[in-house]
């Protein structure tokens, strides 16, 4: 672990409490993850693979059964550090309904920074900026519970953005969104990361979102099975398949064509890359 490490999981195992005498199986099995400042990391994995458990451990909502979670070197089991940890890592949880606390959108977004004791003028600015970034500024006086799922999700994201934590963990923020909503959230996240240097951890089921990350971690049944750049990770179709996932559409198509003898290069991930490779492949034939 060096100075640049923001989140560090050291041999972390976690088990949920059982209602009966038989203990539940481990939800996380001895996992090691280091996330560096400024990274944009996507976490993929089948339903139940342990992704949300990682999110909860990152912000001291739950503690490891064994092993350690450090946030900028702060041990999450130390209760005195809870406030500092939550000011460093903000989490947008899966179901936005559970996160809405106020009756007006802008009050809801102001809730986090108010709890951090930030002065009103600064809060005003942060709330407006955050709502604009997620495209919800026009709804600032609306009642959150009457918004659509996607709109609620964006309000929840604005709430965490307004806290200006160094790191934001988002648990499937785009699951309920339409294509435009998904793109808006992705763009907001990328801007936060590139322009403000905020570390982003994005939990998602969408492969095309993972392709845009710097790094992809794949979970399978409580274990980390892949960890690398999108190109490294998606060059392992067997592990991806075993983990219940699939390749990005362009990669899948390129693979299938290669199996049928079409000479396309390895490592195609995006539509742009596919188009370029296809044109090259076809023109290569012409020049013969």
């Amino acid at each position: 672990m060096n100075d640049n490490t923001l989140i560090s999981f050291r041999d972390v195992s976690y088990r949920y409490e059982s209602d009966t005498d038989t203990p539940l199986p481990l939800a996380l099995k001895n996992i090691n993850i280091d996330i560096k400042k400024g990274e944009f990391v996507a976490i993929l994995g089948h339903n139940g693979s342990g992704k949300s458990t990682i999110a909860k451990l990152s912000n001291a909502i739950i503690m490891p059964e064994s092993g350690k979670v450090y946030i900028k070197g702060m041990d999450t089991v130390d209760e005195k550090l809870e406030y500092d940890i939550r000011q460093t890592v903000g989490v947008v949880f899966q179901n936005p309904d559970n996160q809405i606390v106020a009756t007006i959108v802008e009050e809801d977004v102001a809730f986090g920074p108010e709890n951090l004791g930030i002065e009103p003028k600064e809060i005003r600015k942060r709330v407006d900026d955050a709502l604009k970034s997620v495209g919800m500024y026009d709804y600032r006086f609306h009642q959150p519970h009457k918004l659509s799922g996607g709109q609620k999700q964006r309000v929840a994201i604005a709430g965490i953005m307004a806290m200006q934590t160094e790191c934001i963990v988002l648990d499937e923020p785009t699951a309920m969104l339409d294509p435009k909503g998904r793109e808006e959230v992705m763009t907001a996240m990328q801007r936060l990361n590139k322009e403000l240097g905020i570390t982003v951890v994005l939990i998602t089921h969408y492969m095309d979102e993972a392709v845009k990350a710097d790094r992809v971690i794949v979970m399978d049944s409580g274990e980390v099975v892949l960890d690398g750049t999108p190109r490294e990770v998606f060059s392992q179709p067997d592990i991806i398949e075993h983990a219940g996932l699939e390749l990005p559409e362009s990669a899948k198509l390129a693979n299938e064509l290669r199996k049928n003898g079409v000479e396309l290069p390895e490592g195609i991930l995006t539509p742009e890359e596919f188009i370029e490779a296809f044109k090259f492949c076809v023109s290569g034939g012409n020049e013969k």
Partner: peptide
């Protein structure tokens, strides 16, 4: 796209190639 929707990624690739 104007209505906040899209077409499948694969379809976009084909539309692009057709244009070329």
């Amino acid at each position: 796209v104007e209505m906040g929707l899209n077409i499948p990624q694969i379809t976009k690739i084909f539309a692009e190639l057709k244009k070329s």
